[in-house]
Every structure is written in C-alpha cells, then in structure tokens.
C-alpha cells in the first residue's frame, strides 16, 4: 500500500488527516518532534484499519537534518501532507525577535526546507502529491496575528510556485486554507460555532480535494466568500479596523 507522510503529525488537523487516509487504504509515516508521544495515536490507527503506521522523529527547525530524514525512509511516500503550524504570541513576536523567528521558521522556512527535498524526489519520479496546510490568516495581514499570517502568506506563495513547477511532472500540489478550526491551537479562543470546522471536516475536505485534483481549497467552503469580502475592503478603511 502507498504511504502518506504527515509532517507536524501532532496537530489535530494532522491526526484527522491520518485517520482519513488510513481509512482510505494508505499506510502512514507520522513525523513530529518527540514522536514517541504519538505511539498511542498510531496504535489506535493500526488497530482500527490494519494499516502500517510508523512514528518518525523530525524537527522542522533543524533544516540541516531534512535531507537525511527523507533519505532514511525505506519506502518513499506517494504523498506528503504538511500540517506544521505554530500560531505563537503576536505581541511577544513584536517585542522579541526570537518569537517572530520561531513563528516564521516553523510555518514557513522549515516547511520549505523539507518540501524542497521531497519535491525533487517526486519531480524526478514524476508522481505524487503535496498537501500544504496554509491559512486564511495569510490572505490579509491583521494586527492580531500578522507574524503568523505573513509566514502563511509566504507558504501559500511557495505552494503556488511549487505547483507551477511540478505540474509538468505530474505532481499535484494542494494549498489548503482553513478558517476557524476547533483544535488545540485555538482552544483558548472564543470562536463562532457556525463558522468553526472540526478537524474531521477539514480532513474530509483535504482528502476530497486531493482525490478530485483541486489546487486551492478553503475549508469550510464558505471561507472563500468570507475572505473575498475581507480582501475587498479598501486599505484606507481596513487599516482603521480592529481585527
């Protein structure tokens, strides 16, 4: 059976994606820091689906290790899903560059470093798919989370370029832009229920998008229209809003 490699596998969206793909016949590589903590989760999928699930140690910030990490995979995956995400503390990131750097390197630089390695492999063998979880926060900078937002904006642009490059090699790149999702990342926020997706809904959307050859998706679907409105607000007005 083909493997899916999931990076940032501890996130709730990653876990939902893992379940979804295992249920649809994929074996899994789950990569994260302190990957031992994923063992119970991995065993859960093994028992439920009878698929192979391996937990792999990966530090997305240790750029130099990425080539070795990928080389060490015995069987190369058919696809990869990056669910790496670090919201960080916006105020802190304005005062302490360290925090800003961690946000940028986790959400953007680290993902670029690893996906560069994987993309070359997929390009050479002329098959595969790359799913990148970006965010609607990357569509327009807002004072409440623009460090995170700018890193996700960069990621979206990177994925777009990657798609442009890899299409000729029959490799699909799917940019996923979730709106509000009920996860550990947002557990302290008071999110409007009607606009908030479950990780399972996101995973369903991601899987359907990949199977149906979509390029960019918003999840839930209505975020496309919400973001359209937000992007349409003229900058002279937007800058005055408390967002």
């Amino acid at each position: 059976m083909p493997y899916l490699l999931i990076i940032g596998a501890k996130s709730d969206i990653a876990k939902a994606i893992a379940n979804k793909y295992a249920e649809n016949g994929y074996d899994l590589y789950l990569a994260a820091r302190n990957s031992k903590e994923l063992e119970t989760f991995a065993q859960d999928i093994r028992v439920k689906t009878d698929k192979k699930v391996e937990c792999l140690e990966l530090d997305i910030l240790d750029f130099a290790s990425h080539q070795d990490f990928y080389n060490n995979l015995n069987e190369k995956p058919e696809g990869v899903a990056s669910a790496v995400g670090y919201l960080g503390d916006q105020t802190e990131s304005q005062k302490e560059f360290n925090e800003a750097q961690t946000i940028i390197n986790t959400n953007y630089t680290g993902v670029v470093s690893l996906l560069n390695v994987i993309a070359s492999n997929f390009e050479a063998r002329k098959s595969g798919f790359i799913i990148g979880i970006s965010s609607v926060a990357g569509e327009r900078g807002r004072q409440s989370n623009y460090t995170y937002g700018s890193a996700k904006a960069a990621l979206s642009a990177y994925l777009s370029g990657l798609r442009n490059r890899l299409t000729a090699s029959n490799v699909a790149v799917i940019t996923v832009k979730p709106g509000f999702v009920d996860t550990q990342m947002t557990e302290d926020m008071d999110l409007p229920k009607a606009l908030t997706a479950t990780p399972q809904q996101v995973a369903d959307d991601v899987y359907n998008a990949q199977v149906n050859g979509k390029n960019i998706i918003y999840t839930r679907w209505f975020w496309k229209w919400i973001m359209l409105i937000i992007k349409t607000i003229p900058e002279w007005k937007f800058k005055q809003l408390k967002l």
Partner: peptide, 14 residues
C-alpha cells in the same frame, strides 16, 4: 477513545 489492540486469532479487541 483509543483502540489499543486486536488479537486477530482470538477475536479479542482491547
């Protein structure tokens, strides 16, 4: 709600 183990031979699910 984690599945912990399945003994295929005995049909016992943990």
């Amino acid at each position: 709600n984690k599945f912990l183990d399945f003994d295929q031979k005995a049909g016992v699910l943990h």
